[in-house]
C-alpha cells in the first residue's frame, strides 16, 4: 500500500467527480448544492448519509432473511402427496434426486450468497464507520465482489416462477408459490440497495476528511 500512499485524492485537491457521468469538476465553495455541468446530476463529496442508509436497508434485509428461510417458497401438490418447500428443503430435494451440481448452485446462490452479503456489508459498514485502516485493499475488493454477486440471489425466484407456470395440470400436479418467495425477493432487493447506498470511498477516508462527508 506504500506505493499508493502518495496518490492524490479528489477530496484533498478540491475536486468533485460525478458518479453518473464521470466528469471531474472543481468544487466551488460558494455553491451549496452543486450539480454536474454535463449531466446535471447532483454532486456530492461522498454519497449522502451513506452509512445510515446502508445500515437501515441492511437491517431490514437481515430481519426478512428469517421468514425467507422459514416460510415455504413453493407448494407442490400431486394426486399422491402435497409438499411445502422452503429454500433449504428445495436444495435437499435436488441433492437427493442426484442433481448435486445444481443443488450446489442453488445452495450457493440462495443461502450462502445472501448470508455472506449481509455479513460482508456489516463488516464494511462497521470498519468504514470506525475509519479503520485494516486491510483496505481487501475491503475494497470485498465491496466489488458484493456488487457483482448481488443479483445472482434472484435465481430461486425465477425458478419458482417458471415451475408455477409449467406445473399446472389442475388436479394431477400443481405448483404454487408460497409467501417465503416474497420475503426472499425482498431480501435480495434490500441487500442490493444497501450495497448501492454504501460509498466505497469511505474505506479510504481518514477521520478528519471523513467527518465532513
Amino acid at each position: 500500500m506504500s506505493s499508493a500512499a502518495g496518490l492524490p485524492r479528489a477530496a484533498d485537491l478540491g475536486l468533485l467527480s460525478c458518479l453518473a457521468c464521470g466528469l471531474v469538476c472543481r468544487a466551488l465553495p460558494a455553491t451549496a448544492a452543486p450539480h454536474c455541468p454535463r449531466c446535471h446530476a447532483p454532486l456530492h463529496r461522498r454519497k449522502p448519509a451513506s452509512l445510515s442508509r446502508s445500515w437501515a436497508l441492511l437491517i431490514a434485509a437481515a430481519v426478512l432473511y428469517i421468514p425467507a428461510n422459514l416460510l415455504p417458497i413453493m407448494q407442490t401438490s400431486t394426486l399422491l402427496y402435497s409438499e411445502n418447500d422452503t429454500i433449504l428443503s428445495g436444495v435437499l430435494t435436488l441433492w437427493r434426486s442426484g442433481a448435486w451440481d445444481l443443488a450446489l448452485i442453488v445452495f450457493v446462490a440462495s443461502i450462502v450468497v445472501p448470508l455472506l452479503k449481509i455479513a460482508a456489508l456489516a463488516t464494511l459498514l462497521l470498519s468504514a464507520g470506525a475509519h479503520s485502516r485494516w486491510r483496505r485493499r481487501e475491503r475494497a475488493r470485498l465491496y466489488r465482489l458484493i456488487e457483482f454477486i448481488g443479483q445472482w440471489s434472484m435465481l430461486d425466484i425465477f425458478v419458482v416462477a417458471l415451475l408455477v407456470a409449467l406445473v399446472n395440470f389442475n388436479s394431477v400436479a400443481q405448483v404454487r408459490a408460497g409467501p417465503g418467495a416474497i420475503a426472499f425477493a425482498s431480501v435480495v432487493v434490500l441487500t442490493m440497495l444497501a450495497s448501492m447506498s454504501f460509498d466505497p470511498r469511505l474505506i479510504w477516508d481518514e477521520p478528519q476528511t471523513g467527518s465532513r462527508a
Binding site: S3, P8, R137, A140, W204
Partner: peptide, 30 residues
C-alpha cells in the same frame, strides 16, 4: 476537466492515458 479521471471506488485522481485495444486501466490504490 476531461483529461482527469477519478476512481469511483477510492477517490484517487489520475491523468487519463490512451490505451491500446484490449488494455484496461486499474486504480493503483484500490
Amino acid at each position: 476537466m476531461p483529461t482527469l479521471i477519478v476512481c469511483e471506488h477510492c477517490d484517487t485522481v489520475y491523468q487519463r492515458a490512451p490505451l491500446q485495444p484490449g488494455q484496461r486501466a486499474r486504480c493503483l490504490r484500490c
